[in-house]
Design a protein around this nucleic acid. Structure first.
Lengths: 109, 109
DNA sequence: ATGCATATGACGGTTGATGACATATGTAGG
DNA sequence: CCTACATATGTCATCAACCGTCATATGCAT
């Protein structure tokens, strides 16, 4: 799972959001590091919906246009939690390996 | 940076390795979760070399064939450390968001 | 002799992210 | 009034990275 996908799920975990709301939430969650493009977003939304990780929560007509809210499904929450755990393991692994790096003073070896 | 790339850098952090050694190291580091394909590996090796994150350490002729060892560069170590930190933040963000999930007993809200 | 681990590498296909574009309303400023 | 920007949804072509498969070759064990 890539970062944009991961952050979309994370954004939807707290509450249902519509497309533009997700873009803003991801911007906030990533401290401005990840600017989600609409191309990335709507493609990911379709994909995640098909995979059952998210679902349409409700549709509200605003200014004569349909605003679609998505929410995280139970499967999506599980996937997100699993991925978070995975990331933590990877980070720990990298640190462990870096501490064994040759030519480093203060190595644990 | 994707997971295979990340794990290649992590594998090389501890010591220089040749291609097949990296495949085995990644398998071990990921506790068998990530089986690196040779197609992924050699493509990533070329790319990371071009980016200056890894470098050829030495070349040893074994059985009439060249075995090429790569090592992590300083830039690669910095990139790996930065990415690890990034992963940790993402994991924490996801957990925080999940704890705010509606319909959950025991939410911190 | 058959098969498996070791070992390097190329090639085509798929997936997911990116960048650019199209479209439309509300709002603020000149 | 006109311009520009935030809000808002969506499509399309392209690209980067990964995946699966194939090709090739040696050493070792059965």
């Amino acid at each position: 799972m890539q970062e944009p996908t991961f952050l979309i799920l994370a954004a939807l975990a707290a509450r249902p959001l519509h497309g533009y709301g997700i873009i803003q939430a991801v911007d906030g969650l990533s401290e401005g590091q990840v600017k989600l493009r609409s191309g990335t977003l709507y493609g990911a939304l379709d994909r995640l919906d098909q995979q059952g990780l998210i679902a349409v929560d409700r549709e509200e007509p605003v200014d004569g246009r349909l605003r679609r809210y998505y929410r995280l499904s139970d499967a999506g929450a599980a996937a997100l939690a699993g991925e978070a755990e995975r990331l933590r393991r990877r980070a720990a692994t990298a640190d462990r390996q870096l501490s064994m790096r040759p030519g480093l003073a203060g190595g644990a070896a």
